[in-house]
Design a protein around this nucleic acid. Structure first.
Length: 331
DNA sequence: CTCATTTGACCTGGG
DNA sequence: TCCCAGGTCAAATGA
């Protein structure tokens, strides 16, 4: 990369290209084609015995998956932009929330706890150093019924965080103060789910559910419901971004969540940290997208694209070089 | 004594 | 109506 020549300090992004696992033969034909990758061994083997009709079908399918691939690329770009935004603003995009949302239907009513002092310290402080990796998630709006029969949309956001598996605290540090009000073991996951409320403002309707992934105990999934109706507490510097883990603004990992499957792409982990956690009844299209995103080729391409985008960003490389130079002893 | 967390009981909605 | 599972409450507990 020519960045090394431009910059006073050679910049070599150790993105950690994931180990490419050999796909199973069964997935070979479908998945590789779905990912829009041509020239694979599978493709060559298939082409030798292909008739005209099959070729046309495959061509049509290829066009279709190419289009899908393009949409996926756009989606990745969108997620990347979201990730940057997330790192700047925090998980809920606080500070822009109108006060009217204080009367959200999710705000606890009825029986009230006697002690309502909200002078808690951030419960994540003690364990924040155990956080290893935090990945971006997607906003999902769900409708919440109001008492008058209408529906109001509540912002739901899911964030996957990689933590030390020995850490049982279920604390996801996001810059806000949370009060735990319950814990429950759910049916589909042996790990308990912890329930938190925003402790900064009594009227804040935001709730958070935190639960370890059933697939990987080192991954905790935090689900935020609602939007904060107050600014981020002062002094809350930790952000759920990979930037906090010493990687600058590098989007070291991406998580795509929807109401169906949860995909975690951990591109920094050797051997590849891709998980496809299929929750509930995933739609066939969604499953297909999951398979595409999980493919080694896709991941490799994604890493390459991100590395290219970052190293091509003069501002980023200069800032990084400057930061490194500051750390070097004076000669 | 104060306060956050724990945890069993209770509530509620969906099937 | 009953059952089940998720969500919430609040007394107990411990720091």
């Amino acid at each position: 990369m020519d960045t090394a020549r431009r910059s006073p300090v050679c910049l070599d992004l150790m993105v950690g290209l994931p180990m490419v696992r050999e796909p199973s033969p069964a997935r070979c034909a479908g998945m590789r084609a779905d990912a829009g990758i041509v020239g694979s061994a599978c493709g060559r083997a298939a082409s030798t015995t292909m008739t005209n009709g099959e070729a046309k079908i495959l061509e049509a399918k290829f066009t279709e998956v190419s289009e899908e691939n393009r949409r996926l690329t756009e989606m990745i770009g969108y997620l990347y932009a979201n990730n940057q935004n997330f790192a700047r603003q925090g998980p809920e995009g606080e500070g822009e929330q109108p006060a009217s949302t204080a009367a959200s239907p999710t705000s606890p009513v009825g029986k009230k706890r006697g002690r309502e002092s909200m002078e808690t310290s951030d419960s994540g402080d003690a364990n924040s150093d155990k956080k290893i990796n935090m990945v971006e998630a997607e906003h999902v709006d769900v409708k919440s019924p109001l008492s008058n029969g209408t529906c109001r949309r509540i912002k739901v956001k899911r964030v996957c965080t990689r933590i030390d598996p020995s850490d049982t605290s279920l604390v996801v540090k996001d810059g806000y103060q949370w009060r735990k009000y319950g814990q429950k073991v759910t049916r589909d996951n042996p790990s308990p789910r912890a329930y938190f409320r925003c402790a900064f403002a009594p009227s804040c309707p935001v709730k958070k559910k935190v639960q370890r992934s059933a697939e990987d105990s080192s991954v905790v999934e935090a689900t935020y419901e609602g939007e904060h109706n107050h600014p981020r507490p002062t002094g809350a510097s930790e952000l759920p971004s990979c930037a906090a883990q010493g990687g600058g603004s590098v989007p070291c990992s991406i998580s795509i969540n929807s109401s169906g499957p949860t995909i975690t792409l951990d591109l920094t982990k050797n051997g590849g940290g891709v998980q496809v956690v299929e929750a509930g009844e995933a739609q066939p299209d969604l499953k297909k997208v999951c398979r595409e995103v999980a493919s080694p080729e896709f991941r490799a391409a994604l890493v390459e694209q991100m590395a290219r985008a970052l190293t091509g960003d003069r501002k980023f490389t200069d800032a990084l070089a400057a930061a490194i130079l500051r750390k070097l002893p004076d000669y």
